[in-house]
Each structure stands twice: as C-alpha cells, then as structure tokens.
Amino acid sequence: MSEPIYLPAGHVLIPAADARSIARAIFKAQEELGKRGASFHPSVLKLAAYLNSITGRTEPTPQPQADTVRHEVIDAPEAAQILGCTTRNVTNLLARKRIPGRKVAGRWQTTREDVEVYRNYRT
C-alpha cells in the first residue's frame, strides 16, 4: 500500500490500486458476514462501491438483508380455531402466558406461529 496524501479539511488521496484493494476487502468481508447473518452498515457498502467505481470498475453493491421478520398477527377466536378449543380457553392461555401474546384495545393478539408451536408441542 502506498502512502496516502493528506489534504486540508480531513480529506485523503489514495492510489487507485489501494482503493480497489480496500473495496475488494470490504466486499469479501461482507460475504463472510452474510454467511453468519450479519452485515456491514449500508454506508460502508456504499463506500466500497464508490471506491470500486472510481477505479473504473463496477461491481454490484451487495444489498443488506432485511433484519426484520413479519409474523401474522391473529386474535383469540382465530387461535381457538387453530387449537380446536374455545375462545375463552385461548384467552386463559394467553393471560397465563402459556402462549405469548398481548392485549391491544381490550383484545388478545398473538402470532399464528406461536399458536402453532403451542398446538404441536403441548403436553
């Protein structure tokens, strides 16, 4: 790696070959992080893409994967249908925290996944 040239206002000039090396290293590290379900901050990936493009090469910027998972929210009557029991039984299970849930505007809500897990593993 060559010596960088420092400019006023905190700017730095680096040779194109070094910029390419830095970009490749970031992309390679992103691949490894992706295998573990992690990711660089999007600004780091943007920097790598910029460093790569100013050297005359273009490589698609890896897109960070969504960190959120959406779960289908259901109410007590629908949970009762899945479990084959009464709504009152489901509200008791929710109140006793046998099934994870919460009360919203006076009505119990839970996720379909939590109800199915309870159904499949209840003893």
Rank of each mutant, 00 (worst) to 15 (best):
L45M: 13
L45S: 03
L47I: 07
L47D: 00
L47C: 10
A48M: 09
A49F: 01
A49R: 09
A49L: 02
Y50N: 09
Y50D: 13
Y50K: 08
Y50G: 02
L51R: 10
L51H: 07
S53W: 06
I54W: 15
I54E: 14
T55N: 07
G56T: 10
E59A: 13
E59Q: 15
P60I: 06
P60F: 00
P60C: 03
P60Q: 15
P62R: 06
Q63S: 11
Q63I: 05
Q63V: 06
P64I: 12
Q65N: 14
A66H: 03
A66W: 01
A66K: 05
D67E: 14
V69R: 10
V69H: 11
V69G: 00
V69C: 02
V69P: 00
R70D: 07
H71P: 01
H71R: 08
H71M: 09
E72T: 15
E72H: 05
V73R: 15
V73A: 12
V73F: 04
I74M: 05
D75I: 03
D75E: 07
A76Q: 01
P77W: 05
P77E: 06
P77R: 00
E78H: 12
A79C: 06
A80C: 06
A80P: 05
Q81N: 09
Q81P: 00
I82L: 14
I82W: 00
I82S: 04
I82N: 04
I82E: 08
L83F: 08
C85I: 15
C85P: 02
C85W: 06
C85K: 09
T86G: 14
T86I: 08
T86M: 05
T87V: 07
R88A: 09
N89M: 07
N89V: 11
N89K: 15
N89W: 08
V90G: 00
T91E: 15
T91I: 12
T91W: 03
N92Q: 15
N92R: 14
L94I: 04
A95K: 12
A95C: 05
A95T: 14
R96E: 06
K97W: 10
K97H: 11
K97I: 09
R98G: 10
P100N: 07
G101I: 12
G101A: 09
G101W: 02
G101P: 04
G101L: 04
R102V: 13
K103F: 13
V104T: 14
A105T: 10
G106H: 10
G106A: 03
G106Q: 05
R107M: 05
W108G: 04
W108A: 02
W108I: 01
T110G: 06
T110E: 02
